[in-house]
Design a binder for these strands. Structure first.
Lengths: 252, 252
DNA sequence: CGTGATGATTGGCCCAACCATAATGCCTCA
DNA sequence: TGAGGCATTATGGTTGGGCCAATCATCACG
């Protein structure tokens, strides 16, 4: 009944026929919900939809797009699952545009890991390349603030070590903060995307050799020293050894 | 009416209370569709659902999970959007478990890159780190087949150059094939994820200096030579210069 | 022996409700 | 006047039923 007719009308509105309006226009261009997803993505890319913005309520979007609520909801579900919006229920709820985050990429990576397409050793190798490779950038660009933050992490780490409450989270935090010292957002995102996998491999390493926390922290401090001296070769060397020690315990 | 009661029942069936059955069990665990997603994910992780397998039709899943079709469809939408299943319509259609691929991760990365403040220079910097960093691995692990494939790409590239039909696609293909020679799927995934951004920056480079195609191809050949000699230092040097030339034209 | 009609399977989309959750504001009672 | 509680409202979540569209298998007909 009305359902189908509305559908066709909606498609014509959303994707205008390429030529000969009304004649031979493709009647099916895939899923309507995907068209909606594309439209919203486009708005985000063009900056008309910024992080924090709230999309209109589902019922409004239905009217605007001329489709049913189910379709809009499927579109929102896809956007949400792509990490582009966050959906909250209740009054003043709705779909909020999220700030781009590396979490989603990390999830995808974690999927690949758990589905055993890639191994922990593979991830460690990438870590080595990335984290060793960025060291020269760090030496070149680290600010006083960067260095101070890194030292602060080390201090907290040592305190926790003495209190017996050390965990590999400190190491993770350290390495991510190092990446931030490159002042290259792409590098930061990449390293953060590997947060989950990194954490997994760090925990494996800790199980294999729990006493290594102290040694790791001392190496972190030596690394900071080298960065402060703006000595990329020494810093690279320290970072490489530090990571190789971890990698070695994971075996290849 | 029945709706709500069935819902609660379904939740109890799907997520058994952790302890004290019936007492203090959480009354709401979020969306039903997410529970379904988790269940199916779990089956995939446990290997009971392998790539290529077909999930039961939507209407069957409704019965099994005791939920409505819309709910099942939203779950499938999320799985699809995470790249875990592929949905085909028509008789013998349905939701098929997809072979895990890095494409989805790449899409997420691409979103991250296009939706945030990342410049071409940032991307180029990451490229440098990655593609220079993998060279030792390539020298160590490249097989005869890898080298032969790389040479074949160079030959096609030269032919196109002579015929005037050269495009930066050849360069892209070459660099991705190099990554594959590491035989580390995580590396391949990462480099492939940068395919889009890489292509962008390569095209910018070509516009800035269109005559460089020939020089690039010659450098590719020198690189292959070094790999064949298993000379990581020379190969690294060549790759670094090769990329730096590109980076330089983009300016920093 | 094609070959085209027909039916069956399955996803895509719609509708009209109703439920659940959360913020808001009013309203009563101390 | 203040504070707790109750109704209101806005919004997403879920249901059941239904029709349409795409695709594949089958079978009768030429």
């Amino acid at each position: 009944m009305a359902g189908s007719r509305e559908t066709v009308q909606a498609r014509e509105v959303l994707v205008p026929p390429p030529a000969e309006p009304g004649m031979f226009s493709r009647v099916s261009v895939g899923r309507i919900s995907e068209i909606i997803v594309d439209q919203i993505r486009l708005l985000m890319r063009q900056g008309q939809l910024k992080p924090g913005d709230r999309l209109p309520p589902e019922r409004d979007l239905c009217e605007r797009f001329g489709v049913s609520r189910v379709t809009v909801r499927e579109a929102l579900r896809m956007l949400e699952s792509s990490g582009l919006v966050e959906i909250r229920v209740g009054a003043r709820g709705g779909a909020f545009v999220t700030a781009p985050s590396s979490d989603r990429v990390g999830e995808g990576l974690a999927d690949l890991l758990t589905l055993s397409v890639i191994s922990a050793a593979d991830v460690t190798e990438v870590r080595m390349i990335l984290e060793v490779g960025i060291v020269p950038l760090v030496c070149e660009r680290a600010t006083e603030q960067d260095i101070a933050d890194l030292e602060e992490i080390c201090e907290r780490s040592e305190a926790a070590l003495r209190a017996g409450g050390y965990s590999m989270d400190f190491s993770l935090e350290f390495h991510i903060r190092v990446a931030q010292a490159t002042h290259n957002p792409a590098v930061v995102m990449l390293v953060e995307s590997f947060r989950g996998p990194i954490l997994m491999s760090l925990q494996q390493a800790q199980e294999a050799a729990p006493e290594m926390g102290g040694l790791g922290t001392r190496e972190h401090e030596r690394f900071i020293e080298a960065v402060r001296r703006r000595d990329p070769d020494a810093a690279t060397q320290i970072m490489r050894e530090h990571l190789e020690r971890t990698a070695h315990r994971l075996g290849r």
